[in-house]
Design a protein around this nucleic acid. Sequence first.
DNA 1: CTTGACACAGAACACTTGTTCGCATATCAT
DNA 2: ATGATATGCGAACAAGTGTTCTGTGTCAAG
Lengths: 216, 216
Amino acid sequence: MATVSGESLTESQQRILSFINTYVEANDVPPTIREIQKGAGISSTSMVSYHLKALERANLLNRRERSSRGVVVKDPSRVTLRDMVNIPIVGRIVASEPAPMPDADALRDCENTVQIARSMVGNADGLYALEVKGNSMIDALINDGDIVVMKRVAEVKNGDLAAVFLTDRNESTLKRVFHEGKRLKLKPENPTMKPFYVDARVAQIQGKVMCVIRKT
Amino acid sequence: MATVSGESLTESQQRILSFINTYVEANDVPPTIREIQKGAGISSTSMVSYHLKALERANLLNRRERSSRGVVVKDPSRVTLRDMVNIPIVGRIVASEPAPMPDADALRDCENTVQIARSMVGNADGLYALEVKGNSMIDALINDGDIVVMKRVAEVKNGDLAAVFLTDRNESTLKRVFHEGKRLKLKPENPTMKPFYVDARVAQIQGKVMCVIRKT
DNA sequence: CTTGACACAGAACACTTGTTCGCATATCAT
DNA sequence: ATGATATGCGAACAAGTGTTCTGTGTCAAG
């Protein structure tokens, strides 16, 4: 136990800590000293203050001095809680037609969304999601019902997984793309399958795949 | 205006609202009346109180009377923001050995977590995540580097996707399981592959797969 | 013009709330 | 015993804080 961590938390301090947590959960606001006193069964406000200082030393709290309700728990699981993005599911992707691109109407109207932690996808701009229909994408290791989170990007870089519509075959597919002169190398995700090449002019890049989600 | 709707928000009220939002974002605590007064450029506390009442009537705020910092904004996009779960990545799953099961130590020590919206996985109890190593799971449409969110469950139901360790082959695999008497039917996710059968005694169910995530 | 509804400013009041001080108890190594 | 340290209790203070009261001014309806 090398760190400053609270290896020796009094029972009172644990009570205080958990009381603050449940209080915040219920009220969206940290409690006052006196509320802690009652809620955690501490005898006096000075004791609460005393324990809070100890907890602050143990690096479990942040306190703002002389500010009412100035105690927030340093719960790492709470730090990033706010960063969730709602991504609209704007349509379906099937092999036989181009992948939908989101327009303003689709974004507004769609009632289905998928929630993703921002840490998963980074900047949320231009994100949209498609539901995979049919099992024609299994060479991309993507199955019927999977959710593909896409991003509108100006251009895809070599190695990006992208939705590509091949105009000569009338077919949408998800492949890793590599620019090779006038050709495009399309590499399936499935490592047992061979890449193949198409003329760059017959390949329309529909969007970059950021993330695939499968609920089971 | 007689209605509940806030169709006519004063500029001051909008300022107050957005100030509260940014304040909460920065401080994890709602501001006091006087902080609002300064921050939103209102001339007096009575005016803040006045506007807050209007905002409350417009159903944009919740207030707790006579409680310091007793104002929380009713932001619908914030309601679900809390519903994110941090799932610890407790290990790796490879074909050649049993999938790790989380114990208390692993849960405490692991520093890597994956964040998932609760709406994706339901109850967070017993959830843990594994990183897939190697591409031996491609018959489950799961690739090297994918994250598998698992759940400790008492028993898997027919059709559940589960991590199974086959003691006779010394092999971990992800398959849909069906109980058929003393045998277990194991069905690959890849619809082009045939299911096969094993003796129930050689199959150890390691956990149920809740969700698969692939970052690209 | 009057009236009433609305927006506003300033001040005062009463309660809340973080802090601190004095004092007491217990443990423990010196 | 002695002092150091941690812990506990109660009270009091000063600042923080929500509320309300008294005015002022504007503006449209009666």
